[in-house]
């Protein structure tokens, strides 16, 4: 690792503290998708942006060592399959594709509204991993582009 990789020490320190708070906020947005504004798409984008923050501050080399990009890609693909599986399970148990087959619970409770929180979590996973993998691929693409020119 080159010492000059990434941005300055100030940016790195701030990122090291703030990235966890941003990820926590994204998880909150996903989990409370059925209670407050937000949901899987918005929360997933927030988490992806937190990871993008690390990518910008620490550089491409660090993020490739820190995260297993292949695993993220697998997670992205499998979360689409889980979404489909929940839909088919609804067809088997609840009597219709994507039917809400789990008990609805009490309104305004965190554990309520059946399959909606599950679907929110799956979508959040998919959006955050998918967006980040695309940005990472673009960054790697840029790297190889520069290497060609030299």
């Amino acid at each position: 690792m080159k010492p000059s990789e990434g941005m300055t020490l100030i940016v790195k320190t701030v990122t090291r503290i703030s990235v966890w708070l941003i990820i926590l906020y994204g998880i909150y947005i996903i989990l409370h998708g059925h209670l407050s504004p937000g949901g899987g798409f918005a929360g997933g984008v927030i988490i992806a942006l937190a990871l993008l923050n690390v990518l910008l501050a620490y550089g491409r080399g660090f993020i490739t060592r820190w995260l297993n990009i292949g695993f993220l890609h697998d997670l992205e693909s499998s979360s689409a399959a889980i979404f489909l599986a929940i839909g088919i399970l609804g067809m088997a148990v609840g009597g219709g594709f994507l039917a809400n087959f789990i008990s609805h619970g009490k309104l305004f409770n965190l554990l309520s509204s059946g399959t909606i929180p599950l679907l929110n979590i799956v979508i959040g996973l998919k959006v955050c991993t998918g967006l980040f993998v695309v940005v990472w691929t673009l960054a790697i693409f840029h790297l190889s582009d520069k290497g060609e020119k030299q």
């Binding site: 998708g33 489909l84 839909g87 809400n100 009490k106 305004f108 309520s112």
Partner: peptide, 30 residues
């Protein structure tokens, strides 16, 4: 649906099939 957020109740219950399409579009784009 038991969901306090009406937008979520529409996109993930009444129109969950539409959301499945969106997820597929995202998957294909990526």
């Amino acid at each position: 649906t038991g969901s306090a957020n009406i937008v979520t109740s529409i996109i993930l219950d009444y129109r969950a099939y539409d959301t499945l399409g969106e997820v597929t579009v995202l998957f294909t784009a990526i």
